[in-house]
Design a protein around this nucleic acid. Structure first.
Lengths: 207, 207
DNA sequence: CCAGGACCTGAGCAAAAGCTCATAATAGTG
DNA sequence: CACTATTATGAGCTTTTGCTCAGGTCCTGG
């Protein structure tokens, strides 16, 4: 593979609407292609073809293939971040309703494309910097949920940190799985059972 | 890529111990290489190099790269399958002890190499036939667990199928995650909390 | 309306990876 | 030991793929 020069990002930044459009079409196409073929087999030529754009255009906006995936990742994180307002919206109500809101949020976040999400996280060499961002995002999410639970009167667990960790990922992973392969179990049933399990766990032994 | 003829498996079958040894070394090396580099970047040349075997030898036992991964998958499934005896071993005791045994089993199954497991499942084009085998294996596991729970007096859930599905995958996925990236939460705490959550869920609302 | 920048094109280069095949080494057998 | 079947080797062929660059087309400000 040609290595090229090592400038940080010598690529053009869009100045006309037309260019912004092209960039978006490339990213949209990339999302589809990566999701369908995986990262390695999702070639830049395939992406360009799907975007109905020449391969040269792709490399005018992205210095290399990794950068395309990185940009998708950044966009996904931005969409999924909770503002303090979002966090407050979550807090009131019964424990069950809080948990349900959490589950719904997870489901929403996987609406777009679960396979892509996995590829973004587990394949493709993301920069150390971006990995850092992702980690921080995850930690922030855990901390936010921790906050919500800490304030809720019905929560009774031995080890709040461990509990939050378990809950967040149980919700996340199960949702992920259900979204990825259309499972036999129906969405509604799944949501109810998951909410039930988590709620009862958080409520603790008394009750 | 050279396509070659389409015989089903024109490759040599080992007749001397020496050959069996070579085959094993290739598979062991492949497991390491795939785990470290992923499927696409885990090249056949790298595998051969790591196995200290020439690339030609690799292709004497495997018709192509996919077949190497497929063989690893088959071996993993074989190791993880429960005999009826295993299933019986699981049944007696309190509900909590049953669940704990389930969790321990999952942890054991991820001991060898979680990254490889993910790659086997999610990357690499496995044959339709093999996919079928994997699916059946999963269904069989779910059915076995279902059996165990169905017989246990303390289990009280609305929808047994949904519950088993949720439980099996919650255990599986959380274990997977913990094994894959050494998480902050310690193993023992994790096991206890997971067992606790699942047990309480299965026990149902009335204590 | 035209000059010059912004944007787009795609043939094709260089590196990498899957895989073959002619040949050599080794093991088993009478 | 001689002879054959089995196993091992690795240079290199072929295809794939990331990416470049020389030369176009389109847009906008003056």
């Amino acid at each position: 593979m040609a290595s090229g020069h090592r400038d940080i990002d010598p690529r053009r930044k869009p100045r006309q609407v037309r260019a912004e459009l092209t960039r978006d079409r490339i990213l949209t196409a990339a999302a589809h292609v990566f999701s369908e073929h995986g990262y390695a087999a999702g070639t830049t030529n395939r992406i360009a073809e799907r975007a109905r754009v020449s391969i040269g255009s792709l490399y005018q906006y992205f210095p290399n293939k990794d950068a395309v995936l990185a940009e998708l990742m950044v966009r996904h994180i931005d969409r999924g971040t909770w503002t303090p307002a979002d966090q407050l919206d979550l807090s009131p109500g019964t424990l069950e309703s809080v948990v349900r809101a959490l589950v719904r949020d997870a489901i929403d976040n996987h609406r777009d494309d679960p396979r892509l999400l996995r590829i973004m996280i587990e394949e493709g060499q993301l920069s150390a910097e971006l990995r850092e961002t992702i980690t921080r995002h995850g930690e922030q999410r855990v901390a936010q949920v921790r906050d919500v639970f800490a304030r809720h009167p019905d929560v009774d667990v031995r080890d709040l940190d461990a509990a939050v960790d378990l809950v967040v990922f149980t919700v996340e992973l199960n949702t992920h799985r259900l979204a990825a392969f259309q499972q036999p179990v129906a969405m509604e049933t799944f949501e109810n059972e998951l909410v039930d399990m988590v709620t009862r766990y958080l409520r603790g032994p008394g009750r």
